[in-house]
Amino acid sequence: MMWNKEKTKEQLEEEQQRRIDREIEKSESQKKDTAKSHGEILREQLSDAQETYEKSPQSILLSSLTAGLEIGFSYLMICSLFYFLDGKLGEDTMFKMIAFVYPLGFILVVLGQSILFTEQTALLTLPVLNKKRDVLSLLKIWALVICGNLIGGYFIALILLWLGPSLHLFDQETVVKIATHVLDFSLGVIFVSAILAGWLMGLLSWLLASARDTISRIVMIFLITAVMAFTGLHHSIIGSVEIFSGMMSSPEISFWDYISFQSTALLGNAFGGATFVALLKYRAFVFNVGGKS
């Protein structure tokens, strides 16, 4: 009797999974002149995620390394703007003005289709929730993307630390001020802040799937990342460039400061993207499908 009940439960789960897959595939027939449905966006996100899983490790590592390099252009603009405004505006105002230049690197990464950890967090979780991939494969691909992003970030940081002062774009003091500003919070605050940043980046990936033209995509990227910059939410990849640069420029910022910040920000970003976007939006779709049965 227990075996029969267990078998029935498994059959019900398989039946529900088939129903979910059918509903997702239905969205392919959606007309192009109408707004995309929840199912259509989900199908597109799942398709994009599966394509990433099917890439070779070398391709993923190289693409994520490229993203780490490209995000450095945001850091270049942050330092240059801060140095340019120094003495003309108050420091609090200067940090708020960073919101206007912060999105540049993200625009380059997203439109160039490089793989950035925070943008891919929610996306790569979806096939696991849809039972097309397992948790181990998710962790492996996350590890590759994080390594590539961080290595690319270190490389561009070292270039900018030499080039910035050489071109009189910014000085070492600017680098240290920005790093200190990012670090000037408890780890608990950084963690919650990183959760919100991961949530926003996951939403960005979802919103981009609903956009049909490049201008709309640029506007969405700008709005989401400008909000992150204006409110000071902690992003693990550009934050890595900021703290690493500060560590290279001042003995007051230690390797432990970098490690504690980086691990906390990565965990927060991953939790925010995977939980508040991938899980909630996927479960909302599943409950809707269940209601149709």
Rank of each mutant, 00 (worst) to 15 (best):
G87L: 09
A49M: 07
E242Q: 15
F271K: 03
S63M: 02
F255E: 03
L85D: 06
G272K: 06
F73V: 10
S245H: 05
L139F: 11
A49Y: 08
M94W: 05
I78N: 06
M2H: 13
S240M: 11
G105N: 04
L160K: 02
G188T: 00
F244D: 00
F271Y: 09
A229N: 05
C147T: 14
I151C: 06
V192I: 15
L123T: 13
I41K: 10
Q58P: 04
T8H: 12
V101A: 02
G153L: 08
S186T: 02
K5P: 03
I60N: 05
V145Q: 01
I243V: 10
K7V: 12
I238W: 06
L208H: 01
K7W: 13
A35D: 13
M248C: 12
N4W: 05
S63C: 02
G268H: 00
I156C: 10
K9Y: 12
V110M: 15
A35C: 09
V176R: 00
F100H: 05
T52H: 10
K32Q: 14
E25K: 13
D134M: 01
V277D: 00
F82Y: 15
R43S: 13
P57K: 08
S210W: 03
T121M: 05
D48E: 15
E10G: 05
W3E: 14
A265R: 08
P103Q: 06
A209E: 10
H234D: 14
S80D: 03
G68F: 03
K140F: 07
F100S: 14
H38R: 05
M201P: 00
N130W: 03
F117T: 11
L208P: 04
E51H: 09
A211C: 15
D184R: 00
Q16I: 10
A194M: 06
Q58D: 10
L12T: 12
T121P: 01
L204Q: 04
S74Y: 09
G272M: 11
L158R: 11
L69T: 03
R133N: 09
L204T: 08
Y75C: 05
V135F: 08
Q45S: 13
S137G: 08
L138F: 06
V176L: 01
V219H: 04
L183H: 00
F244R: 00
R18V: 11
L123K: 09
L200Y: 01
L150K: 05
P57C: 07
R212E: 15
E54P: 01
S27Y: 07
E51Q: 11
S216H: 02
L223Q: 02
F271C: 12
S137E: 14
F73M: 10
G239M: 04
T66V: 11
C147L: 13
L167A: 12
